[in-house]
């Protein structure tokens, strides 16, 4: 695994998950996730996915500036999510980060691009479930790990304001 590939994978993952690079590295699983995607889909698919992401970012950025969010969204949809081979893989990468589980790719994908030995549904490590980003997104802990402490559940969830969109939950307590 080249360091560049890991960097590219992190960059892709930041865009796919809306979690920061330090959060992704903070799971301790970035390398294992990249290796898992390679084992499940094959090297060529991963290379193509990372290339498509680089191209999307370039397309969305004007003159080397930061990519414009709307243009990046469009570029990702066109180059990755709607792409027959890359779309299902990208969606699986999202779920991998969020759930810690690699979900088996749809049968039509494996029919077209071949089944790798490590392609079926599995948790990557015992830790990967605990590091699922899903739980952070809803300000909860993965059931069975990272407990918040006695009685913390009586307070409102610490969901970031930007996701509450003004729907207050201050009416209690």
């Amino acid at each position: 695994m080249t360091p560049d590939a890991l960097e590219d994978f992190l960059s892709l993952s930041v865009d796919l998950t809306a979690f920061e690079r330090t959060d992704l590295l903070g799971t301790g699983l970035a390398r294992q996730y990249l290796a898992k995607v390679r084992d499940a889909c094959g090297e060529d698919v991963v290379t193509a996915l990372l290339e498509a992401h680089r191209a999307a970012r370039t397309e969305a950025a004007e003159d080397g500036a930061r990519p414009d969010p709307q243009r990046l969204d469009r570029a990702l949809r066109h180059r990755i999510f709607s792409e027959e081979r890359l779309g299902p893989v990208a969606r699986n990468v999202i779920k991998l980060w969020y759930a810690g589980t690699w979900y088996g790719l749809p049968p039509e994908w494996t029919d077209s691009y071949g089944a790798q030995p490590a392609a079926e549904t599995s948790t990557v490590t015992a830790a990967s479930y605990q590091e699922g980003l899903l739980w952070r997104a809803i300000a909860a802990n993965p059931p069975g790990a990272k407990a918040p402490g006695y009685g913390a559940w009586a307070r409102p969830p610490a969901i970031e304001d930007r996701y509450l969109k003004g729907r207050s939950h201050d009416r209690t307590g």
């Binding site: 865009d15 796919l16 809306a18 990702l76 969606r91 779920k95 899903l134 997104a137």
Partner: peptide, 25 residues
């Protein structure tokens, strides 16, 4: 839930990034 919601948002809803985080909340 919540894994079924995650799968639905990503696979059927086309959500990723910020819109996925919003969708989960």
């Amino acid at each position: 839930a919540p894994m079924s919601d995650l799968a639905d948002l990503v696979d059927a809803g086309g959500r990723y990034g910020e819109s996925l985080r919003q969708g989960l909340v």
